[in-house]
Write a protein that binds this DNA or RNA. Structure first.
Length: 380
RNA sequence: GGGUCGGUACUCAAGCGGUCAACGAGGGCAGACUGUAAAUCUGCUGACUUCGGUCUACGAAGGUUCAAAUCCUUCCCGGCCCA
């Protein structure tokens, strides 16, 4: 279980095609993973995700712990059964929430109305873990690495993420270093707790640690080496695409990659855009996730081969075109821009569903195209 | 016919002598969004603009005033009440 087989490698880049085995099936990489924070990829039914080629989906420890509660999910037979998704699932640890809820200085926070950020002290980070106030009712909770492992084990995802701290892009060196060291310590604690819990479980789970280190070369390398030495089934790269310039993002990736084991999947957290995905694959990234396709869908935007479009734009009012003339997804085969615009303008639920559908399908398609470049003879 | 209340930008609707090109809401136009506090948020929405302003505007026409969407007169239109 959790073996990673490399099927082929690109001759012109570091890209590779692989297979990662999980208790709920094999994940063919590179692989884009849609995000379903609360146990649902917003607006999408599991069978629809299957249809468009989603292999594995994400869910979030923080959100599911708060509601409906991990114990409830466990009683309902685990997350797979609860949400009717029998493919692989990955749960994020809640480390990103420490970042996104923690300070109103972050990029993410800036983009949310200030009204909603009056309560700045939602999160307090200590060496032991993170104290936070629920976004739902303000109640206080404590996440420690051990607690997070217990929650992720109760949820029962195939891949579970270690508890980390994701510092803001502009974190100074001192902060980034402390944060990284904390993340390292937490990773060790996660591993220990996870091994204890995993021993007693019939269905095993894979723990992935998360590399941090801010935007500092030496810290990034140190973190990569530290996490690689843990010898877990896969490794994630976190703390990127959090507001830094793109050159910095790829510089960090290029720096890290040589320090990662070649025979384990590499998961770059939180990207992307079609461009980011292409860049990541080229550099030997095997897995990535992003809220963008579903969020953009809900906000009336769509990926196209000519860039992102706003379907609400007046130019689409009478358009008989599909979202993208090269896309062969269900939405593009059946609906005009004019109709999709109408749905979004009228706030009809079908609109955000169809746009989410197209956006996820579009990213899967990008990956498929990139895979053909790696190994033109393979049949996908 | 008499009385009374009202006519404000695309719509609804504040303002009731200067700080009013005019609150607010809706609608419209555009933008942002990258391990989801996000079906959210931001900007613009009289015209022109070298972005500092300039012009035209609150039913119509006159008038008072240094100054009017705001006060006065007449007229037009609408609601309600009385004949």
């Amino acid at each position: 279980m959790f073996a990673f087989k490399i099927k082929s490698k690109s001759k012109s880049s570091d890209a590779r095609i692989g297979e990662f085995s999980t208790p709920h099936g094999i994940i063919e990489t590179p692989c884009f993973m849609p995000v379903g924070t609360k146990g649902t990829v917003k607006t999408m039914k599991p069978e629809e995700l299957k249809e468009i080629g989603s292999q594995i989906i994400l869910a979030n420890t923080y959100h599911l712990y708060l509601r409906p509660g991990h114990e409830l999910v466990k009683k309902m037979g685990g997350l797979h059964k609860f949400m009717n998704w029998n493919g692989p699932i990955l749960t994020d640890s809640g480390g990103f929430q420490v970042f996104s809820l923690g300070t109103n200085n972050t990029l993410a926070a800036k983009q949310i109305s200030k009204k909603r950020h009056k309560d700045k002290d939602l999160v307090k980070i200590t060496n032991d873990g993170v104290e936070f106030k629920s976004i739902l009712d303000g109640s206080k909770h404590l996440f420690t690495p051990e607690k997070v492992m217990q929650i992720e084990h109760a949820l029962g995802a195939d891949i579970i993420m270690a508890f980390d701290e994701c510092p803001p892009a502009f974190a100074d060196r001192k902060y980034a270093k402390q944060s990284m060291e904390k993340t390292h310590d937490w990773a060790l604690r996660c591993k220990k707790e996870h091994e204890k819990l995993n021993k007693n479980q019939k269905v095993k789970q894979a723990l992935f640690p998360i590399i941090q280190g801010g935007m500092y070369d030496d810290l990034r390398i140190e973190s990569a080496e530290f996490m690689a030495a843990l010898d877990l089934p896969g490794i994630a790269i976190g703390g990127l695409a959090v507001g830094e310039p793109r050159e910095t993002t790829w510089k960090m990736i290029d720096l890290i990659i040589p320090h990662l084991p070649k025979n384990k999947p590499r998961y770059m957290m939180g990207i992307g855009t079609p461009e980011d995905i292409r860049e990541a694959i080229k550099r030997g990234i095997d897995m990535f996730d992003c809220v963008l396709p579903t969020r953009l869908g809900r906000h009336g935007s769509a990926f196209t081969s000519k860039g992102q479009i706003h379907i609400k734009n007046e130019e689409n009012k009478f358009s008989k075109k599909s979202l993208d003339d090269k896309c062969e997804c269900y939405v593009c085969k059946n609906y005009t821009r004019a109709y999709l615009r109408h749905l979004i303008m009228e706030n009809e639920i079908l609109g955000i569903h169809l746009l989410s559908w197209h956006n996820i399908a579009y990213l899967h398609d990008i990956v498929k195209t990139e895979k053909r470049k790696i190994s033109p003879t393979s049949d996908f």
